[in-house]
């Protein structure tokens, strides 16, 4: 399997743990990633609020490079993924919009490349194959899979799984030997980039998610979105201060646990220093 890889800005900035672990787990599973040369930002979270066309044209510029290569796209960032899914949706439902986007990017967009998130991209390999690749099963580890909103909502456009109770990430966690915690806030919103606009509201939103994962008995929260990761992990001490709570649950990318279970070292994938919250307790549990 070969994908056009669109890492996005976050994975090349602070969230290298995601980039590294996505590459590692892809390697373990025999997935080849061809990084789209000179990809540009997808425009989220602002371009679509500035103009409908510009919000589609910016991600289309990168998408068209994958089309020319004849490859489907793998985009591990939820925002990048959804912006590209919207481009395909519009291109395939509105010939007029297709023409406008093509004009804006000065190239023809066809809508022929499928856009995979890292969740459905990896799940497509099959749970059996994932289990076979595991060298260190994460026995006894209770994992709360946090999908966030963009991968499953709005369901007519973004729908890798059920919008209220998705299972794909849970299944993958089971495939690597961990225990998937059944919890109710899998797709509640963390607040995304509202963190840079209205801190009070966003911290309350993220707190709600962390609190429910802890109440549900999870040892770790896994995410598949750099913004979810930043809001839950980087802001946890701030949340504790504001709400007089004492959460200290590690929040890591699900790909880190997968790569680790398949033999990568914590140093290789950023599981040691790639997060604001401590991961020592997690590493002690799974080593």
């Amino acid at each position: 399997m070969r994908y056009a890889y669109f890492p996005g800005c976050s994975l090349h900035s602070m969230e290298t743990a995601y980039d590294r672990s996505v590459k590692a787990v892809s390697k373990h599973l025999g997935i080849e990633l061809w990084e789209i040369p000179d990809w540009v930002c997808c425009g989220a979270s602002s371009a679509h609020s500035v103009g409908h066309l510009v919000g589609l044209a910016i991600p289309a510029k990168t998408l068209v490079k994958a089309e020319k290569e004849g490859l489907d796209v793998l985009a591990p960032c939820a925002a990048c993924w959804q912006r590209m899914v919207w481009v395909n949706h519009e291109v395939n439902t509105s010939p007029k919009m297709k023409e406008k986007i093509s004009k804006a990017i000065e190239e023809e967009i066809k809508g022929t490349s499928k856009i995979f998130s890292i969740i459905d991209g990896l799940a497509a390999v099959g749970m059996e194959k994932i289990s076979h690749a595991v060298k260190k099963p994460l026995k006894g580890l209770k994992v709360a899979s946090y999908y966030g909103c963009y991968y499953v909502k709005p369901p007519k456009v973004a729908h890798i799984d059920d919008p209220e109770n998705p299972q794909l990430m849970d299944e993958m966690m089971k495939a690597i030997g961990a225990e998937a915690v059944d919890w109710p806030f899998k797709t509640e919103c963390c607040g995304t980039s509202l963190i840079f606009q209205d801190l009070d509201t966003t911290l309350a939103m993220s707190k709600k998610v962390i609190e429910m994962a802890v109440k549900s008995g999870a040892d770790v929260i896994v995410t598949a979105c750099p913004v979810c990761e930043m809001n839950l992990d980087m802001r946890m001490a701030q949340i504790n201060k504001r709400f007089k709570t004492s959460f200290h649950i590690p929040v890591v990318y699900f790909t880190e646990l997968m790569a680790y279970a398949m033999g990568s070292t914590p140093q290789e994938i950023g599981l040691d220093k790639g997060h604001c919250g401590e991961t020592k307790s997690l590493l002690a549990k799974i080593s």
């Binding site: 004009k103 804006a104 980087m234």
Partner: peptide, 29 residues
């Protein structure tokens, strides 16, 4: 958390071959 975040944050702007691409798209739109 601040120290960890500061360590991970790249200090210099990203370098791409085509930094003007988005500007052109915005103007075209």
């Amino acid at each position: 958390a601040l120290i960890n975040a500061a360590t991970r944050l790249p200090k210099f702007p990203p370098k791409v071959k085509n930094p003007d691409e988005i500007r052109k798209i915005v103007e075209n739109c």
